[in-house]
Design a protein around this nucleic acid. Structure first.
Lengths: 248, 248
DNA sequence: CTAATAAATGAATGGCATTCATTTAGTGGT
DNA sequence: ACCACTAAATGAATGCCATTCATTTATTAG
């Protein structure tokens, strides 16, 4: 799907299976003691493609986190020499972009066209935040990423834009509104990963009485929500009503 | 003057000036060809302290960006061996925390106590965003940073908390409201650094008609504002009115 | 006075992304 | 059917980076 240039001849089936075969390759690599050394030179069937690299990167991240996502580890997961990756991606950043675009397809935009605007935005925003809360290291990359060759990302923006226009937003305010919401979502994704006691004032509690009191009051009525969820809900509802008020 | 071996006797002034002397040390280091090698062993007057390290890191960042902020480069800037830094900070992350806390003191909280709540939040939020737009690599660090030993950061939170309480916010909602605003601010800081043409759909323009139209309409009436500022203003005003409505 | 501690140097160490020369296999043109 | 070209792999560097350790020297506490 991302598949670019020439996946043309021969066996598309093999190539198609390739992406999914990642797990298998890894299983072979670790489970089977006698994984033959592949000899140098081009193999008869290509071992790598972007789909497979993306899948392997995602599995690696879910097992070891982003610290574990190194080109060497990725190569190992794919049972390949590290340098082989560079026949398919120009840099590690490219790998991150592949992962990012894949994740965008997991964001739920189904509300647009099915529910009223407010509810569609709610569904989208929560889903978007939840997906990237697990992938915060991608945020600095996404936030500056030209959308140009990220098809899933573009698809998401298209769905949302249509939803906003149908809801009566003037064309000129659609992008700004989306950007504002997205900024809030990215910031909130970080918040999810913060430790619970992030605001404990420690030794300086006495010099910060108002802040300390506010923090302590959080522990009061044991809300069933995580603090990050409370803040996200609060901000999201404020944005929804504030932005929604500007429709034509 | 910070010079080498024979600086022992006398001048405590040197040590006191140390923090601010960073620039001078650097100027000596590069400007003067014959910077004497400091011999091994503890020098009579300490060369490093946290203030100096912070100042040097900030200068380095402003000259070379965060990619240029390496422990080696920082050491060079301070005319010191890289390993010497580890007598004062435990890790590079520590250096980033020093920088972060310093930057917090640049955020304008003067509106709280001087203006109505809405205006105070506006001043604070714009200032906060503008400071960190130049320092986005710190955001992943801040967002998860326990506030405990960051005095400037705590001071900022105290000022804001007081402002919210005085404006009639119930104690239990102060932290959530601040977190919501902060999340939006962090996300928006990234947005400032994004390229102007980040949303150009490129080849896929035809498959994303609504989004493409929305993007194109931005170029229409040439607003004097940068797009990032428009989106920030839009979202901030929505948050201010949405959160403000919940006061007691 | 002496032991402990603090603050510097300089020489590793191991991990990392990336590059390059080399090998082998498929492909397109004549 | 050959041949040049390109694609895709290996394996061996390269250079940068944060961090650690042994060592040296100076200050400070008991």
């Amino acid at each position: 799907m991302l598949e670019t240039t020439k996946e043309r001849a021969g066996m598309p089936a093999v190539s198609a299976t390739q992406g999914r075969a990642t797990g298998t390759a890894a299983a072979n690599g670790s489970g089977n003691a006698e994984t033959r050394r592949r000899r140098a030179g081009r193999p008869s069937a290509a071992v790598l493609d972007k789909t497979g690299i993306t899948a392997a990167a995602l599995e690696l991240v879910s097992r070891k986190g982003y610290d574990g996502l190194t080109m060497a580890a990725l190569a190992k997961q794919l049972d390949v020499a590290p340098s082989a990756l560079y026949n398919h991606v120009a840099s590690k950043r490219d790998v991150l972009l592949l992962v990012e675009d894949h994740l965008m397809s997991l964001v739920d935009v189904s509300g647009f066209g099915a529910s009223v605007w407010e509810e569609a935005v709610r569904t989208w925003a929560w889903s978007y935040r939840n997906v990237f809360a697990e992938h915060t290291p991608l945020i600095p990359v996404i936030a500056v990423l030209p959308v140009t060759d990220a098809p899933q990302t573009l698809a998401m923006y298209e769905a949302i834009s249509k939803g906003f226009l149908d809801a009566g937003f003037p064309e000129s305010r659609v992008v700004s509104s989306i950007v504002a919401l997205e900024s809030f979502i990215f910031g909130s994704a970080y918040d999810v990963t913060a430790p619970e006691d992030i605001f404990e004032p420690g030794t300086m509690a006495e010099s910060t009485p108002h802040f300390t009191a506010a923090v302590r009051s959080l522990g009061g009525p044991p809300s069933s929500e995580r603090p990050a969820d409370t803040a996200f809900s609060l901000g999201l509802e404020a944005l929804i009503s504030g932005l929604g008020a500007l429709r034509g």
